[in-house]
């Protein structure tokens, strides 16, 4: 079993059952998981900011407007079917109660990712977003399981695992 770290501004996709895609300690960032539960193909993007403002270089996956379409392309390239894609969102917290700008970043990240998913007609089927706590997301490729963990807490399922072909 291989754990792939998806760090700030990175994304990854896999069709290999047993792979685990992980983003550790998401604060205002969003961990966006895309899954095709029929084929067991999944991807994870670690989105840092809502919008590139149009002049960012190609490959700036830290921006939601770059990361969302790219992640869709990557899972589709691996064999996921676009109409079957479903999304899970984790993160978008406001870590610092007093700091207005970080609150905005977390909320704006979630709003931007949701809008981009709507444009792609992808439903959000589970989420743990907002609030003030940091979170780790793990995506188990194959069993289609997504878990979330908070500081000092235990890993809990956000999307219960199921074998390919069975509705979770």
């Amino acid at each position: 079993m291989a754990e792939t770290m998806v760090r700030m501004g990175e994304l990854a996709a896999s069709a290999v059952a047993g792979d685990v895609l992980v983003s550790l300690g998401l604060g205002s960032c969003i961990g966006l998981a895309l899954l095709d539960r029929r084929t067991g193909i999944a991807g994870l993007a670690h989105v840092v900011l809502p919008a590139s403002g149009g002049n960012a270089p190609k490959g700036s996956w830290k921006f939601a407007d770059f990361a969302v379409p790219e992640l869709v392309d990557r899972v589709v390239k691996l064999g996921a079917r676009r109409p079957m894609l479903e999304a899970v969102l984790v993160g978008g917290a406001s870590m610092f109660a007093v700091s207005k700008s970080s609150l905005e970043v977390g909320q704006r990240n979630e709003a931007a990712v949701r809008e981009l998913l709507r444009e792609q007609r992808i439903n959000v089927i589970a989420k743990e977003t907002g609030g003030s706590r940091g979170r780790t997301i793990r995506v188990y490729v194959g069993p289609n399981k997504v878990t979330v963990k908070e500081a000092g807490g235990t890993e809990k399922p956000l999307l219960a695992g199921a074998t390919a072909g069975v509705n979770a």
């Binding site: 870590m95 109660a97 970080s102 003030s132 940091g134």
Partner: peptide, 17 residues
């Protein structure tokens, strides 16, 4: 402003800004 949480969440939020 202060937060007690995962190191990664704190540092990433500051970097993101």
């Amino acid at each position: 402003a202060a937060a007690t949480d995962m190191l990664g969440a704190i540092v990433q939020t500051v970097l993101a800004e």
